[in-house]
């Protein structure tokens, strides 16, 4: 069922590298609450791609990527201008730019189609991505660029981390905020643009957001998050491409997205540290303990000396109470239990 060709392996490795780097970058973006910027920028790349085609009249990937990058940068520039000069909400300007740019791209495409040069298939590939049909040289180029972005992230890792977590301290060190923000933007545009061909416009945002969301469920450390996000991104890219190549008509972008989605859902529910399952189990356990030690809490809170005889005897047997001349008194162990129960994070 699989054609284990050299090309397929190249594409799988290429997508895996892209997934890893997008995952790492996504960790920064989700922490800055700019997760959706990838979505906006990838849509905004369409007019650039169409223009590159109109100008050069050839379907060279590097030309199309260049066009895409220029138009995505322009959108990014407009976003920043709007943010600086107006009080329009960031999400509103993002939504309008996303849709307006995409619309303009479509206008250009319809112009191209009129001259009969390009087919509609090009567009749907742009929207959904089709990694399996890519040329090996193109994949190599994309993988190399992604790798370069990864290296830049590693080089500036400490700086970006500081910028995201403590901007005030970052500034006090004399570092430029504008530089960090511009660096993140440039890297995002590059990753989005090269990702479009592999996974498509709409699902590029999944490749940026989902790995970091999944990683967050497993680690509380930033570097841990980045590493796990990279692994999840790479794994999904790898597996998604493989599944997509196993059947005809299975575009790679959606398959990778579904793989990522499954990982996110699984981790949300079953994560050993933050999972919803664990939260539920803990809640039930806590409720049971409260019922079990209700009388003990009563004794502690009210400095009471007696409770139902059988209950008190049971507590005494567990060495939570001792019998004195005046009545029952809490032992250190009993006091400890009440304190943990009352102060416990009973979320």
């Amino acid at each position: 069922m699989f054609d284990w060709s050299y090309t397929l392996i190249t594409v799988m490795v290429g997508t895996a590298i892209l997934g890893a780097v997008a995952g790492a970058l996504g960790t920064f973006l989700t922490l800055r609450r700019q997760a959706l910027i990838g979505d906006a920028l990838s849509h905004a790349a369409l007019p650039g791609i169409a223009l590159a085609y109109i100008i050069t009249q050839i379907r060279s990937l590097s030309m199309l990527l260049l066009g895409a990058a220029i138009s995505a940068f322009f959108a990014m520039f407009l976003l920043n201008v709007i943010k600086r000069f107006t009080r329009i909400k960031f999400d509103a300007s993002m939504a309008l730019l996303l849709s307006g740019f995409f619309g303009f791209g479509q206008v250009l495409l319809s112009q191209i189609q009129k001259t009969g040069a390009a087919s509609q298939a090009g567009l749907s590939r742009f929207i959904l991505g089709q990694a399996a049909t890519m040329l090996r040289a193109d994949v190599m180029m994309i993988a190399l660029i992604a790798f370069g972005v990864g290296v830049v992230i590693i080089l500036f890792f400490k700086m970006l981390k500081l910028y995201i977590f403590d901007a005030a301290f970052y500034r006090s060190l004399g570092l430029s905020e504008r530089f960090a923000s511009a660096l993140l933007s440039v890297l995002t545009v590059i990753i989005v643009v090269i990702g479009i061909r592999l996974v498509g416009v709409i699902l590029m945002s999944a490749l940026i957001i989902a790995p970091s969301v999944a990683a967050r469920q497993l680690s509380n450390r930033f570097s841990g998050n980045v590493v796990i996000a990279m692994m999840i991104g790479a794994f999904s890219g790898f597996l998604g491409t493989l599944i997509s190549a196993s059947r005809a008509n299975l575009p790679s972008g959606p398959v990778i997205t579904v793989v990522l989605g499954m990982i996110v859902i699984t981790l949300l529910v079953f994560s050993p540290t933050r999972g919803l399952m664990r939260q539920m189990v803990e809640r039930v356990r806590f409720r049971k303990r409260i019922i079990k030690y209700r009388a003990l809490i009563h004794l502690y809170e009210n400095n009471a000396l007696a409770c139902d005889e059988d209950v008190c005897e049971r507590y005494e047997k567990h060495r939570l109470l001792v019998k004195t001349e005046e009545g029952y008194a809490l032992t250190d162990k009993g006091r400890h239990i009440v304190k943990t129960l009352m102060g416990a994070d009973a979320s």
Partner: peptide, 17 residues
């Protein structure tokens, strides 16, 4: 467990895919 913008991104891409 998930911030607002990331939630939007995760849910709609999955359903669309």
């Amino acid at each position: 467990r998930v911030k607002e913008d990331a939630s939007i991104g995760v849910v709609f891409t999955l359903l669309f895919a």
